[in-house]
Amino acid sequence: MSRPDRPCSRPFPKERLVSAAVLFGVLALWEVAARAGWVSRLFFPPPSFIVQTLGRMAWSGQLWTDLGYTMGRLGAGLFLGAGSGLLLGWLMGASRPVRLALDPLVAALHPMPKLALFPIFLILLGIGEASKVALLALAAFFPMLINTLAGVRQIDCVYWELAANYGARRLAMLRRVILPGSLPMSMVGLRLAANNVLVVAIAVEMLSAQEGLGATIWMAWQTLHTEELYAMLAVIGAVGICLHFIVERVTRWLMPWNNRETRNG
């Protein structure tokens, strides 16, 4: 049997080779199937054609314009939403009255599909960028808030008492206990928020934008340019991977004490 998948074990290069081989195998099979006519080229254009299309879109600049719009909205939404989720998470975690007051509201709003709220944002903020960014901020807000709140609540009470015994009050408590103590959970929240924002960004662009990856996907569908559709999906996948690694990097940089590899028993 294989070794148990412990969180602190790193994948061997050999294992990475296996995942690369599987991915490559699937793509090769797809290529052959499409070229041999086993599947419809309209629905499943061969990967080589998709790559070619991607190259054409990159060359013409359309890809970069779309990517720029999507990333701009995504970045702004993530920054505003995750930032306010973080602040409110700390506040709710540290203050019982605030927590009791807002808990039911959060419970009611969190599971609501964010796209269902889009018309309200359109009414409030118009059809420009503001309404889209606001919706994305909302998509980032809840995962961040809920994880940060849980992160603050799980800080061992010894640390609160230790800090209080040395005379830590509000601001010192926030800076030295609440913030670092909840950070591991907040970073999980950030990862979920980034994913969520990407999903909602593409969806909202399909719904009401002229530019952006989502808008181009919708256009490709309406004109039956499926190769463009697949090319955009590949780009979205790449954006997802990039976000993942950025969050990973930031996490390591912010939490040097969490770096288990330096543990010497």
Binding site: D156, V158, Y159, E161, L162, A163, N165, R176, V177, P180, G181, L183, M255, W257
Partner: peptide, 12 residues
């Protein structure tokens, strides 16, 4: 006060 254990902040 000196606590039994967990007496240091793990993040400092």
């Amino acid at each position: 006060f000196v606590f039994q254990n967990h007496a240091l902040f793990p993040w400092m």
